[in-house]
């Protein structure tokens, strides 16, 4: 693991230089203080949710004694709901969307960064503008679009997870291509030139050189796309209509929408479990995100 290496390297530094305590405080220690404060800010509402999830009659206001009861009823009750189906749906939809987004955006960013062609600026500006469109107000159009498509390709019609993925992919270029584009621009062109002299085609340069160097941003975009898709419910609840196709966000939203008997305890437990895949994914991708470029060829 990259960070293990980093830690080891850090220890070596300590052994070699033996910095005095005051210097450690000045250069490293204060960072821990900030870290602790930031984490407190992060975690407080999450502890609150965790506490609510452990309280069978939990609510979102009024139960201010954290961890008054520790009871896993809510978690076991999840078993009798559609929760696991939703979780699987969410994972499928978010994973496919994330992979598709990364592939499409990386290709687009490569084209924008490495080629000069007519309409390039216009396309870039167009991409930027398209994402400004308030999708929330366009749900009627999405509904009717999928209705028509469904007449021809039933798998891409309403109430289909694949259709939802397609809608998400439609929005993929807007945001993420730019993020990628910025990073692609930081990769020196000399690398491409050298490969070109070696006889590489554009596809070979893209796959074997560029993609490896931009691995961190691929990981970041993949993660961002996964998370955004995972928590999206405004479009998802227009597209998905029956509980067996719901994603977690839609399912949980439906629980929360119950004005009278919202099962807050169940809801909180569901939210806690729902966050696990994101945390795991982040753990897995962290080495790419923060360690990727440091040993790459860019430096050398």
């Amino acid at each position: 693991m990259a960070s293990d290496v980093a830690t080891v390297r850090g220890q070596q530094t300590t052994l070699e230089h033996k910095p005095p305590r005051s210097r450690w405080w000045r250069e490293v220690g204060w960072r821990h203080v900030i870290g602790v404060v930031a984490i407190a800010y992060c975690l407080l509402p999450l502890l609150y949710i965790l506490s609510a999830s452990l309280n069978p009659g939990g609510s979102l206001t009024g139960s201010n004694q954290l961890f008054k009861t520790i009871d896993f009823t809510n978690y076991s009750d999840l078993g009798s709901t559609d929760f696991s189906t939703w979780a699987v749906n969410s994972l499928i939809v978010a994973s496919v969307t994330a992979v598709g987004t990364v592939l499409m955006c990386a290709s687009a960013a490569y084209a924008f960064s490495r080629f000069r062609f007519t309409g390039r600026r216009a396309t870039l500006t167009g991409l930027l503008l398209v994402q400004m469109f308030p999708q929330t107000l366009a749900f009627v159009a999405i509904f009717l679009l999928l209705l028509s498509i469904g007449d021809v390709f039933p798998v891409l019609g309403l109430n289909s997870r694949l259709a939802l993925i397609a809608v998400y992919l439609g929005a993929a270029l807007g945001t993420n291509a730019f993020l990628m584009y910025g990073f692609f621009n930081t990769i020196p062109r000399e690398l491409d030139e050298a490969a070109k002299i070696d006889g590489a085609t554009h596809a070979q340069i893209f796959v074997t050189i560029i993609l490896r160097l931009v691995a961190p941003i691929l990981a970041v975009v993949g993660l961002l796309s996964f998370i955004a898709t995972y928590g999206e419910f405004v479009i998802a609840r227009v597209v998905l209509q029956t509980p067996e196709n719901f994603t977690l966000a839609v399912g949980l939203y439906n629980w929360a929408a119950d004005e009278r008997n919202a099962p807050w305890g169940l809801f909180a437990a569901g939210a806690v479990i729902a966050s696990v895949p994101i945390i795991v994914l982040f753990q897995f991708l962290q080495r790419y995100i923060v360690g990727g470029l440091t040993s790459g060829s860019v430096k050398g």
């Binding site: 992060c42 975690l43 509402p45 999450l46 949710i49 998370i227 995972y230 928590g231 419910f233 977690l248 966000a249 949980l252 939203y253 929360a256 809801f267 939210a271 729902a274 966050s275 994101i278 945390i279 982040f282």
Partner: peptide
């Protein structure tokens, strides 16, 4: 972590 929770929740 805050990012791991659905925003509306």
């Amino acid at each position: 972590l805050p990012y791991a929770f659905p925003g509306f929740l």
